[in-house]
Design a protein around this nucleic acid. Sequence first.
DNA 1: CGGATTTGACCAGCGC
DNA 2: GCGCTGGTCAAATCCG
Length: 288
Amino acid sequence: MERKEGVLKIEEVLGNSFSDYFPLQSISDWSCEGGEDMPLGFMELLGVQDLNPPLFDMGQQQAPSAVVNQALNPCSTKNEGFNYQPATPNSSSISSASSEAVNDEPIQVDDDQEEDQQKTKKQLKPKKANQKRQREPRFAFMTKSDVDHLEDGYRWRKYGQKAVKNSSFPRSYYRCTTTSCNVKKRVERSFTDPSMVITTYEGQHTHPSPIMPRSSLGGGAGSAPYHYQQHPQPFVNTLSPLNFGHNNGSINAGNFHHERRFCSPGSSLLKDHGLLQDVIPSHMLKEE
DNA sequence: CGGATTTGACCAGCGC
DNA sequence: GCGCTGGTCAAATCCG
């Protein structure tokens, strides 16, 4: 199958503004149809970021979407771009150590988390001292959806909204409500295709999904009953068609796992796998 | 009443 | 240096 068919060029939908954020040429660029050029799959991204069980509700596949990934250094080569390892604070503790690769901005979590919020503002100023405002690795995907805020199993608090240049649609900023979790996400609509919602995740959850009992995907959906109805499951589409350089459309946990090892010589495999579990429904893991 | 959202203001980075 | 834009803050407001 041609993955392309289900994939939208991010630029087509988003236009230039989005290209600013996601300098990738297109999904197919890194989805690696052959799965060869792309050493890291989307799962890699997931492992670093956060896609959640609900995202894998395969029963709700709808419009395909594009997935875009952006590493900290978009200018780097693909491999580097996707090398999230250094930027993966999820390993054991998001604290200082691992965060250095990314930035030291928010990820000092842990103890002074409470103070963090208070500091945050203050940190903005001193920040200019010697380093640019670095960002966590992030990735984005497009979803055909009527609702802006796609439920993904985590709880988000909106902290801002801005009008976006070249777009008539505002961009919303969300932050994970879990203390010590500094994941953010932005949600905006494509101005070229208002039916498309671009969700950009930044950072990495330091906790399991608070809403989704990962074992009850099929039925209850836990305390997030409206996940499936209210939102299409773009993530699924993004995952499957692209499969991010893996097999043809089958999300194979084994491969996934394998891939991670393969592509992540780092030492955070186990941790990532932990996250992986957040990402992939347990039943999928087993069934595969 | 507590938590979430809205919204205007502020700040930093970047390009010209 | 200046202006533009993105990102964040925080007070006010809304909602359950």
